[in-house]
Amino acid sequence: MEPQNSPYGQQSYGQNYGQSYGPPEPGYAPEPQPRLDAGKLWAGGLMTAVIAALTAVVALLLVRGVLDVPVFAPEGDGLMGNATTGALAGGAAVAALVATALLNLLIVATPRPERFFAWIIGLATAVMVLLPFTTGLTWQAKLGTAGVYLVIGIAIGSLLSSVARGAVRRY
């Protein structure tokens, strides 16, 4: 082999250190490991709980007040209803916190946690949406109740999915 001039003024004997020929061998490039910022996850989970509670109140105002459908309370309880309005808002907040705990577990314990989370939230929302149709309520009340549950489920699922993307870093 003849000596070659390198760009650094030294002679090289045809050795190409650091150059790769073809695709890298499998297993040589470590996959970036995800790292969870639990503080960001739970701060986002708390904010999701607040938004879920407010979503429940807004949805009830729409269904009861604007559409005049008596859901979650007898018709005589007025626009804001009775204690069930607060219970629904509180239940939505608790559901968001439980979903945050589930998301935390999935991130640290499963591969592709976002897929598992999407399926679990989607199925839980479907259960809640279908639940009113198993009662003896009027069709208006069934549809109104299902709509409220659907909006709450979408809010929790979409917000926590975004929170997870911001709380997980790949290094």
Rank of each mutant, 00 (worst) to 15 (best):
S158V: 12
A124Y: 11
G76P: 02
Y8D: 13
N5D: 11
G153Q: 02
A73T: 10
V163A: 00
T84N: 15
A43R: 08
G14L: 08
A118N: 09
A146D: 02
K40F: 04
M1L: 14
V127L: 14
R35W: 05
G18S: 07
G65C: 10
V108P: 00
A164E: 04
N16V: 10
N16A: 14
G27R: 03
A92V: 08
L36Q: 03
L105S: 13
A29N: 12
Q10D: 10
A56Q: 05
Y13C: 05
Y171C: 01
T48G: 06
F133T: 07
A124S: 15
L79R: 14
R115Q: 12
S20I: 08
V108Q: 12
A53W: 05
R165A: 10
G90N: 10
P26I: 00
V151Q: 01
R165F: 06
D77N: 13
A95M: 15
G86H: 05
M47E: 07
A87Y: 12
V66R: 07
G45P: 08
G27S: 02
I51D: 05
A73P: 04
E31V: 11
A155K: 00
Y17D: 14
Y149G: 04
A49N: 07
V71N: 01
A167Q: 04
D77K: 11
L150H: 02
R64C: 07
T134Y: 03
L67I: 13
L79I: 15
V148Q: 00
F133H: 09
L103G: 03
G166T: 04
P24G: 00
V69W: 13
P23I: 02
